[in-house]
């Protein structure tokens, strides 16, 4: 049943979001061509006449459009994800969703998973677009611009020689953090929308927005308290780091010290965010099952 829910939720999101992603790609391609053409034009020998300055303006515009398209599409992706959640669960469609022979848990999982997949897709598309622009649009001589990539390649090489394969660990930790943080953000908004729907019957969305800020506030209060409680041990770690003689160490040793020092904080913070995320999920489920009354 979870698979079916995911299939349908994904389809209903893709229906609207796929065109936006294609739009970004289209805008990127146009901007890339424009930028590349603009670079190739040799303005020095010719008087700046009307046609050439027009071309410059247009290419500038195209690049601007690309940036705007990327920003707008990102906002749209987020907006549509939460709008679909609201419509499917908190408004009239809820009569359909909550009478399906599926558990509330699965309904929530499907909403979370499809939101994360689309966030991933959107990020991937933006990444690809930026690469296309850099690769094909910024080449001064020739068609492609590999300079940036060469620089990145050299940096990676340096890291590899200094630290070796163990660099995979911080990378994995960063990925893990991004995933859990994304889930946390998504579930926080979902929870806010649910609370809005439970508490207010006429102004569900407004209430939802209000509760989002309320949750944010509560969480930052919580974080401040925790930071205060651990300020003692943080000071300790900092002093420890200070006591090390950095000049005598090589890159690998420096890396090991730093990485090791960060670990407890990383895992603790990650655990905290994970606990919050799970809390959001469980509270959402409880409210949907027991407190939501669709009018």
């Amino acid at each position: 049943m979870l698979g079916k829910l995911i299939k349908h939720d994904f389809r209903s999101l893709s229906r609207v979001l796929l065109p936006t992603q294609l739009a970004i790609l289209g805008a990127t391609i146009l901007a890339t061509i424009g930028f590349a053409v603009n670079l190739k034009m040799d303005y020095s020998h010719v008087q700046i006449n009307g046609v050439l300055s027009l071309i410059r303006v247009i290419t500038g515009l195209l690049s601007g459009i690309m940036v705007v398209a990327i920003i707008a599409a990102s906002i749209l992706v987020a907006f549509i994800i939460f709008q679909r959640f609201y419509k499917n669960l908190i408004s009239d469609e809820g009569y359909l969703t909550f009478t399906l022979p599926v558990t509330t848990t699965n309904i929530l999982w499907s909403k979370l998973i499809t939101a994360m997949i689309w966030t991933l897709i959107s990020s991937a598309v933006i990444f690809v677009c930026l690469n296309i622009f850099v690769l094909f649009g910024t080449g001064n001589d020739g068609f492609v611009n590999l300079d940036a990539y060469r620089a990145i390649g050299e940096a990676l090489n340096a890291v590899n020689t200094a630290i070796g394969a163990r660099v995979i660990w911080p990378i994995l930790e960063i990925i893990l953090f991004i995933l859990i943080a994304a889930a946390n953000n998504i579930l926080q908004i979902y929870l806010a929308l649910i609370i809005g729907g439970v508490v207010s019957h006429k102004h569900k969305v407004l209430a939802g927005i209000g509760f989002y800020f309320a949750i944010n506030f509560a969480v930052s209060m919580l974080m401040s308290i925790i930071q205060f409680l651990f300020s003692g041990s943080m000071l300790n770690s900092f002093n420890n780091l200070n006591g090390i003689q950095w000049e005598n160490k090589n890159a690998l040793e420096i890396y090991n010290h730093l990485f090791g020092a960060i670990q407890p904080y990383y895992w603790f913070y990650l655990g905290l965010i994970l606990a919050l995320t799970v809390g959001y999920f469980l509270l959402s489920r409880y409210l949907l099952k027991n407190k939501l009354n669709l009018e």
């Binding site: 209903s12 419509k87 469609e93 359909l96 022979p101 599926v102």
Partner: peptide
């Protein structure tokens, strides 16, 4: 009321609940 009961119940509410799109 739960997954098994929902599979046995067919509900027609007063309002339209099918997705518009």
């Amino acid at each position: 009321p739960g997954v098994e009961s929902k599979a046995l119940v067919s509900y027609l509410p007063e309002r339209t609940y099918l997705p518009d799109w």
